[in-house]
């Protein structure tokens, strides 16, 4: 069956703000006819070229490899040159709101100051650290198996869609964030790299590192290049244990505590796990909640702790399938 190119009429509201002349930001509305071929960048270009030349946004390559043009449409982070307008209409209807990735960091319209993003990116040394000969006589061999470890981490184009969608960044400005973590993993998993331990130490700092991730999967959802940053964050966690970089703290003990709890009970001993993670001193801060929970029947007595049936089987699995040590 032959089809012709479909078009739809939509209303686009674009965030506008020029720090030189505007006191407050505002939304400007444009009515456009868009076709099934159009991506968000086509819409922005048409607004700029046909309606308002002063509309400002970053763009360069126009085919999803430079990472300049990420914006938010109806709060969904998108790479403007890749996201089809028709797909967005399916999601949000015929009124689309185009925002900068982060409204607090706007320089002009959709252009933001990405300094925080780049500073954190720099912090993980986003380049190969290796003592490579200036003019080598043969290549530094990386086998297909080794490349597989790097996986999709190398596809990152630093567009910032994940970073500016990360809820931790919003409340903790120190957090390194998903893009830089994925980049760190790209090099900690490269057999030619000599800075593995240093990088793992950087990303496992409390307050800024991987342990502060809330595992919301926003980064995996939003990434236009399928880098799956949360998967790389998980692997960085694992590498800190494998390489002996993990220090004993509430976060590492919490992760390891799951194994002990499962081995003893099958199910978790939730109270025991918190105690194991926090230690006796750390427990103090949880007392008010613990009292409330106890009053409301949320803490089982030790003799009532749930235990899995076939617990011996679980103990055996923990014994034979464990691959990590701490």
């Amino acid at each position: 069956m032959e089809k012709s190119i479909q078009t739809k009429n939509i209303t686009v509201k674009v965030f506008r703000f020029n720090g030189d002349t505007d006191v407050l930001p505002y939304y400007k509305e444009y009515k456009l006819e868009v076709s099934q071929e159009d991506v968000v960048l086509d819409v922005l270009n048409r607004i700029k070229w046909e309606h308002s030349g002063s509309l400002s946004y970053r763009r360069s390559c126009r085919h999803g490899i430079c990472g300049s043009c990420a914006v938010k449409v109806n709060n969904k982070g998108v790479l403007a040159c890749k996201e089809r307008v028709f797909d967005l209409i399916d999601l949000f209807g015929d009124e689309l709101v185009i925002d900068p990735l982060n409204k607090q960091r706007v320089i002009k319209d959709l252009v933001i100051d990405k300094k925080d993003f780049w500073d954190k990116y720099d912090a993980v040394q986003p380049y190969l650290v290796a003592d490579v000969e200036e003019e080598p006589e043969k290549e530094n061999l990386v086998t297909p198996d080794e490349v597989e470890k790097i996986a999709d981490a190398d596809y990152c184009i630093q567009c910032g869609a994940c970073y500016y969608s990360c809820p931790v960044i919003e409340v903790n400005p120190e957090f390194i964030g998903p893009a830089a973590f994925a980049k760190a993993y790209r090099f900690t998993s490269d057999n030619r790299d000599d800075a593995k331990i240093e990088r793992l130490e950087t990303v496992s700092q409390m307050g800024s590192g991987v342990w502060d991730c809330v595992k919301c999967f926003e980064c995996a959802q939003v990434c236009p290049k399928d880098v799956n940053p949360i998967d790389k964050i998980t692997r960085l966690h694992q590498q800190t244990f494998q390489e002996g970089v993990a220090e004993s703290n509430v976060a590492t003990r919490h992760a390891v505590g799951f194994k002990h709890s499962i081995e003893q009970h099958g199910f978790l001993d939730e109270g025991g796990l918190v105690f194991y993670s926090e230690g006796p001193l750390g427990m103090v801060q949880h007392i008010p909640e613990a009292v409330n929970m106890f009053k409301n029947g949320k803490i089982p007595m030790p003799w009532n702790l749930p235990k899995s049936k076939n617990l011996e089987e679980i103990k055996k699995i923990v014994k034979i399938s464990s691959t990590a040590k701490f």
Binding site: E313, V318, S321
Partner: peptide
């Protein structure tokens, strides 16, 4: 499923990926 164990809650996964896979497969 009374035989079940904890799923690892994405925390065991940070420590021991293989163990969490086997437990959840179980």
């Amino acid at each position: 499923i009374e035989e079940a164990s904890c799923c690892g809650a994405s925390h065991l996964q940070d420590f021991d990926d293989h163990l969490s896979l086997v437990l959840n497969a179980r």
